[in-house]
Write a protein that binds this DNA or RNA. Sequence first.
DNA 1: TGGTTGCTGCGAATCATTCGCAGCAACGGG
DNA 2: CCCGTTGCTGCGAATGATTCGCAGCAACCA
Lengths: 148, 148
Amino acid sequence: MTEGWERRLREHGFRITPQRQLVLEAVESLRHGTPEEILVEVQLTASGVNLSTIYRTLEVLEEVGLVTHAHIGHGPPTYHAVDEDIHIHLVCDRCGTVQSVPATVATEFVAQLEGGYGFRTDIAHVSVHGMCASCKDRDFESEADDPL
Amino acid sequence: MTEGWERRLREHGFRITPQRQLVLEAVESLRHGTPEEILVEVQLTASGVNLSTIYRTLEVLEEVGLVTHAHIGHGPPTYHAVDEDIHIHLVCDRCGTVQSVPATVATEFVAQLEGGYGFRTDIAHVSVHGMCASCKDRDFESEADDPL
DNA sequence: TGGTTGCTGCGAATCATTCGCAGCAACGGG
DNA sequence: CCCGTTGCTGCGAATGATTCGCAGCAACCA
Ligand SMILES: [Mn+2]
Ligand SMILES: [Mn+2]
Ligand SMILES: [Zn+2]
Ligand SMILES: [Zn+2]
């Protein structure tokens, strides 16, 4: 459990509740979790918790800096604890696989956007889309096979 | 109107319809358009066209390579004609402004992902999120002002 | 310990997108 | 040019994710 989570909430004027503790624990134990997945995890301990509470709680936890979210593919966002290693998701639009790579691969890119446009990039917020290595290979094969 | 759009559709086994022509024209004249916005534009000419047709048509036009889409912020995707200059959207998560920058700023980053992971990045598919220059400045000010 | 007021559960509303289906129309063959 | 096949379309309903409104409960402070 993240050290000082109660203080963090209180400092921002929020109350400490069992629901908030459970949601934070769930985000930390699942390492990537959508609101629905977090609900299921929370309900293992407290079956009465409602999905709308999950949404509201994640919003609060994000506001006080205890969790962040990232967008992988189209579906719902996935939540992470802030203490995790920051990583970028590479999403293959062909086969749907998701690969995590260290955020440091983008250091130069981030610096360029900061230098050129004064833009402070949150590189992990959205995924990078494209085609993975194996789909690329499969593409070459079929091109070679195709007459014309 | 994109040259050869009819051939493009026929080559993939699709029929030529007024709706498809109108949607393509709408995407080209609006330069960024959500399905709803495209509907409105199309209905200026043909008021009977239905939203579900817009969705189905965009899917087809994308499949044959006449349009692409990008995700800006959370809402619905925005469609572009393929002949447009490729640009990246920088979205400020603080104030919501969207700035377009040439995709070439990412050349090195894209090369790094290709070299290191064999991943072929479609850099314009999703936006880069973060904080714009003016929001950054405003942040510094308030920090300076704040007693504590 | 009690009052204030923030939080929660619940059900309904909203928003974007997708589906099912019956009728229409594009287009290739005759 | 005309017909039959079958892809496309409009329409209304279904779906999935997220948000709202509200009444009752509970965290917290005095
Ligand atoms: Mn987001
Ligand atoms: Mn997309
Ligand atoms: Zn792939
Ligand atoms: Zn901004």
